[in-house]
Simulated scan of single mutants.
Amino acid sequence: MTDTKRFRTLFISDVHLGSKAAKADFLLDFLRHHDADTIVLVGDIVDGWRLKRSWFWPQDCNDVVQKLLRKARKGTRVIYIPGNHDEFLRAFPGTHFGGIEVAERIVHEAADGRKYLVLHGDEFDVVVRNARILAYLGDWAYDTAIVINIGLAAIRRRLGFPYWSFSAWAKLQVKHAVNFIGEFQRIVAEEARRNHVDGVICGHIHHAVITEIDGIRYINTGDWVESCTAIAEHDDGTFELITWREVVGQTPEKVPAMATAIKALNAQAA
């Protein structure tokens, strides 16, 4: 029996099930160890864009969906706010699928009485990008970084190292990407202010953070492609950013003594 931590609310986004980059096994393990009264799926849970190009749906994608449905059957309120990659669900606001509610956006009232606008965030790309969303990195470059990420993650796992995202690191080294993130955060915080709430919870840009922007609490859930993060609300209304770096109990594959040597070199470098 696994130990399970319980929260008032969990916020998860940008899983991209159907993409080879999705860390479905990490998310499934996270869901086994964490529970909540309410789980809010903040968009891009299923990657419809990728599935249209080529079908990829391994068993762990089914397992994540079944886990969420099982939680809903056991009494957890599960709310699905579609993003741009699963925009096909935007045609069904107010609909229930197996106990999962679909909503365009919601206002979440935390335990301390503060109110948060919850939305995916892709609608603000047009404001930020000036019709050049991928000018700072490029779709091809991002896909290439994700492919490198998958390879490095496999090597690190074989060597017994925890998960580390090359693509997330590379993105933050690009000045235009950092500027994009900052501008996105500012625009979304302004939307929260227009809606007369205390904060905003979103996803979309794969950059997890809890911060204050001009008196508005800005919370981004991150993703399960690069950072493997979720936002948890405690019973007192405080929020926590959780990072899930490895699958608990997973044993790294045995490799030659080179692994021990690399670990020793890493220790010396630290």
Rank of each mutant, 00 (worst) to 15 (best):
V42N: 04
D44W: 10
A22Q: 04
V64D: 02
W164N: 13
G48R: 11
A22M: 03
A110Q: 05
F124W: 14
V65H: 04
V197L: 01
T238K: 09
G203N: 05
E183I: 09
R70N: 06
R8N: 03
S54C: 04
A24R: 07
L68M: 06
L117N: 04
D112R: 04
L31D: 01
A177I: 13
G249R: 06
V255Q: 01
K171S: 09
H33M: 07
G215E: 12
R132Y: 09
G43Y: 08
V40I: 10
M258R: 12
D86V: 00
K71G: 02
R105Y: 04
H108I: 11
N195K: 14
H120P: 02
E183D: 14
T144L: 05
Q185N: 05
T221H: 05
M1S: 10
T260W: 08
R90W: 09
H176I: 01
E253W: 05
H16I: 02
V42R: 00
T229K: 14
F88H: 06
V78F: 04
I106Y: 01
D143C: 10
A177K: 01
H108L: 15
T76H: 00
F97G: 08
S13L: 06
A261H: 14
C228H: 12
P162A: 08
D86N: 06
L27H: 10
T38W: 00
C228V: 08
G199H: 13
K254Y: 03
V40A: 03
D143G: 08
G151E: 12
E233H: 08
R158P: 02
Y116H: 14
K263F: 08
D60Y: 10
H85D: 09
G48E: 12
I148E: 12
V127H: 13
H207N: 11
A22T: 10
F26A: 03
W224K: 04
G203D: 05
K5G: 02
N149Y: 07
F166R: 00
E253K: 10
K23T: 05
Y142I: 12
E191R: 11
R70Y: 04
V147C: 04
T2D: 11
Y218E: 09
R193K: 15
E104W: 06
N62F: 09
I201V: 13
W169T: 01
R193A: 13
H16Q: 07
G83K: 14
A170T: 00
N62Q: 11
H108E: 15
Y218S: 06
Q173A: 09
V248A: 08
K52M: 14
I146C: 15
K67M: 07
L134P: 00
T95K: 14
N266V: 03
Y116W: 11
G249A: 10
L28R: 10
L241R: 13
E246Y: 08
R105F: 07
D35M: 03
I155W: 06
A230Y: 14
D139S: 15
H234A: 15
F30M: 07
H207K: 11
A259S: 15
E109M: 00
V255E: 03
I231Y: 08
D63I: 01
T95S: 04
K74I: 02
I155Y: 11
L68F: 03
E233N: 13
A259C: 02
H207F: 15
R73D: 02
A259M: 09
G237S: 11
I146T: 08
L119A: 13
A261M: 12
E191N: 06
L265C: 13
G113Y: 11
I219C: 12
G83S: 12
K5V: 01
R105Q: 13
E123Y: 06
H207L: 13
